[in-house]
Design a protein around this nucleic acid. Structure first.
Lengths: 180, 180
DNA sequence: GTCTATACAGTGATAGAC
DNA sequence: GTCTATCACTGTATAGAC
C-alpha cells in the first residue's frame, strides 16, 4: 500500500499478499479492500470479473516474475545458483508461502488448475534443461529437477508448519548441494 | 459412507475426505452433510462444537493413525522402509493430498497451528531417531529427516499441481534410496 | 472513478416438531 | 436422535449518488 493505487498493477502486490495469507476462499472482499485501501467500487472497476479475475491477475504476475527471473535464466544460462538465490529471496527465507503451491492443494484447485500446472511444468522443464546443460543425462536431469522443485515446495510447507522459517534455508542449502 | 453411521467415529473418514478435497473454509456444512449422509441435526449432535470440532476430530484421528502406523514403528524399530510403504498407501500413490500439510499453507492455519506443528515435529523426530539408530550422526540424521518429510510433502504438492500422481511415486523412490 | 446502499445467495448454527 | 424451518450473519456482486 506504499504507492498510490491508480491501476490494476498497483494493487497486485497487496492482492497477492492477501491471497497468500488467507487462500482464495479466505480472502474476502473486505480483507482485500482493507489490504489494498480500495473500496468495492474501485475493485470492481479494476477487476470487472471480481475475485476470480483478481486471483488470475495475481497468478499471471507471479508467472511472469518467475518466467523472467527464474525460468528464462535457467533455460538460457543454466544458472542454477541464481535460481536458488531468487527463490530464497522471493519466499523471504521461508517466511512467505507459495501461492501457486497453496492453490494446488487447496479448495479452489480446479478453478486455477491450468495455471498451476503450467507454472510447475515450466519450472521443472527449465530446471531439467539447466541440469542437462551441465552434463546430466536427460532422464536424470528431469528426475533431479522434480526432486528440487518438490523439495522447495515441501520445505515451504515444513517451515510454515513448524513455524520455523530457518528450516527453509536449511532445505535450500541441501538442494543447492544436490544440484551442484 | 459404506457403513451406517451411528457415532462420531463412523463419520470421520467421510469428513476427512471432504476437508481434504475442499479445505477447511471450502468444506461447507452442505458438502459435509452430503458426504456423510447426515443432517445438520445429527452432525451437531455428534459434534456440538460445529465445524471446528469436526476438523479437530479428523486431525486427531490422522495424528493417531500416523502415531500408530508410522511414528511409533520408526522410533521403536527404526523401520524406514515400512514408513515409505505406509505413506505411499496412505496418500494413495499421490492421488490423495495431506490434509495437515494443506492446513499448514492455507487460510485457517493459525486455528490448527498447534496440531499441525505437533504432527510434523513428531514425524521429523521419529524419522531422525530411526536414521540415527541406523548409524547416522544425530545432526545429519535430523537434516536427512527434515529433507525426507519435506520431500514427501513437496511431492504431494507437485503431483497434485501437475495432475500426475506418478510423480509422487518417483519421489518416494528417490527418498527411499536417500534414506538407505 | 470512487463511495454508500443494497440485493441476494449461502454460510454456520439453533430451535422445535416428531 | 433426526429432520425441517429458521436464525443472524457474511459472502460476492450490483446499482445509484456524487
Amino acid at each position: 500500500m506504499r504507492k498510490p493505487i491508480s491501476d490494476r498493477a498497483d494493487a497486485l502486490p497487496a492482492l497477492a499478499e492477501v491471497f497468500r495469507q488467507h487462500g482464495y476462499e479466505g480472502a474476502s472482499l473486505s480483507l482485500i479492500g482493507a489490504a489494498t485501501g480500495l473500496g468495492k467500487g474501485s475493485l470492481y472497476n479494476f477487476f470487472p470479473g471480481g475475485k476470480e479475475e483478481m486471483a488470475e491477475a495475481v497468478l499471471a504476475e507471479i508467472e511472469a516474475w518467475f518466467e523472467e527471473r527464474v525460468f528464462a535464466p535457467l533455460r538460457e544460462g543454466g544458472d542454477v545458483t541464481a535460481m536458488f538465490a531468487a527463490v530464497e529471496a522471493y519466499f523471504r527465507s521461508g517466511r512467505r508461502v507459495c501461492l501457486v503451491g497453496a492453490l494446488a492443494l487447496a479448495d479452489s484447485r480446479d478453478r486455477f488448475a491450468a495455471r498451476v500446472r503450467r507454472y510447475f511444468a515450466e519450472w521443472v522443464d527449465a530446471l531439467a534443461a539447466a541440469l542437462a546443460a551441465r552434463g546430466r543425462e536427460p532422464a536424470a536431469a528431469r528426475e533431479a529437477a522434480e526432486d528440487i522443485v518438490a523439495g522447495v515446495q515441501g520445505a515451504l510447507v515444513l517451515a510454515r508448519a513448524l513455524d520455523e522459517p530457518a528450516a527453509f534455508g536449511r532445505a535450500v542449502a541441501r538442494l543447492k548441494a544436490r544440484a551442484a
